[in-house]
Design a protein around this nucleic acid. Structure first.
Length: 121
DNA sequence: AGCATGACGCCTA
DNA sequence: ATAGGCGCCATGC
């Protein structure tokens, strides 16, 4: 699993910025990185998150505030528990109350490609 | 190179 | 609001 121009690293850096009691979405992270279309890659990056890094990946949900399926934590229940420990409120449907807890990451200041003056363009 | 898959998101019925 | 389909982009076979 190779890095995507440090894509993973940037994802981790952003997720580390998510405060307790807040959550963000894959798409929001991707958008903050400059490519809203790379939401899936964000998920992929989190899936490959090395343990040991202080990355609160449990604070990342999809755009609807729904938790993921069965995965590394051992199940969505674990993720939900972790969030509840941070006073995150859940809706009756089992989704995170995005209105209350959605946190939008600031656009990454360091761009992956500070270059390209479009030589051909 | 082609096909299938996925911790996503948006559009349409 | 729910269900199905399509698009994106990187990965794995």
């Amino acid at each position: 699993m190779e890095d995507i121009s440090g894509f993973n690293a940037r994802v981790y850096a952003l997720v580390r910025l998510v405060p307790e009691g807040k959550v963000t979405s894959y798409g929001a992270l991707a958008a903050a990185l400059g490519d809203p279309r790379k939401a899936r890659e964000v998920g992929w990056a989190l899936k490959a998150t090395p343990e040991g890094l202080d990355v609160p990946c449990h604070r990342v949900v999809n755009r609807e505030g729904a938790l993921s399926g069965g995965w590394a934590f051992g199940g969505p229940e674990v993720q939900r528990h972790l969030l509840e420990l941070e006073d995150v409120r859940f809706l009756p449907d089992g989704r995170v109350d995005m209105v209350r807890h959605f946190w939008r990451p600031e656009p990454a200041l360091s761009r992956p490609k500070p270059e390209s003056q479009s030589p051909l363009l």
